[in-house]
Amino acid sequence: MRILRKHHRVLIQGITGKQGTFWTERMQAYGTNVVGGVNPKKAGTSHCNVPVHASAVDAMKDGDGFESSIMFIPPLGVKAAALDAIEAGAKNICILTEHIPVQDVMYVMAAAKERGTMITGPNTAGSVTVGECFQGFMPAFNERIFKRGRVGVMSRSGSLGTLMCQNIVSAGYGQSAFIGIGGDPIIGTTTRDALQALDQFEGTDCVVMVGEIGGSMEEDAADYAATMAKPVFAFIAGGAAPAGKKMGHAGAIVMGDKGTYASKKKALEAAGVTVLDTPSHVGDALHEVLG
């Protein structure tokens, strides 16, 4: 996992679509260094003031090159688009799309692993390097949600991550970076990866982790949290959810005693993480640590 910086050259796959256009304009306005886009049918034209290429491979060869690609691509097109970006030599790929067939996702993950490409998502709302740049559909430009500060935040959910960020700002603090990892069961950047990236990110004094029921990512991250000098706070969504039902996110499902709220809370507390009862408590918790 690499946190996006403003010097990173960013390619937008699916730049000419409605969502691609809307969010590319906002990313550019905030400071994201968008250098090109991809749409095979509109290659050679310009969109959002950057050149449109036929493929990511072409963008790397004929354009200015890029480090990161962000995808606004429908579910059944993601596999081909991601393999294109990996072949082109992308270092980072952010996949926002939800409902991609899981075998397609696994195919992309295997190809990315071989080439050392870092994947964030799928089914993520993106990430924000506060005051610098962002990727995806995050309201980075809303100053009541994102304000430059010293709290690193990671979340599986976009909406809940946004709420947590807003609570942090209204309590008088700000964030260094926000990483949305996505709500799917199989994702590139895990809770542990994001926690480690924030731990190592400059200007970060503590980390707020927003997890949810299902899978074992929070339990895995607890092992890393135990080694951290920086304080970690966590909120886990879904304590009131019934077992065996997918709660909106494909990954948010409790099977038997696996992936339960209790198991995650226990693992995190054993690692020295403060588990918050509700997201509204984050301000008080930060106050004790940051003053």
């Binding site: 959910s157 949810e212 009131a240 709660m247 509700t278 509204s280």
Partner: peptide
């Protein structure tokens, strides 16, 4: 509510 995570959390807070 909007969003899976936020909706789950609203349920949690009601329970809390």
């Amino acid at each position: 509510a909007n969003g899976a995570g936020l909706t789950m959390t609203t349920m949690d807070v009601v329970r809390h």
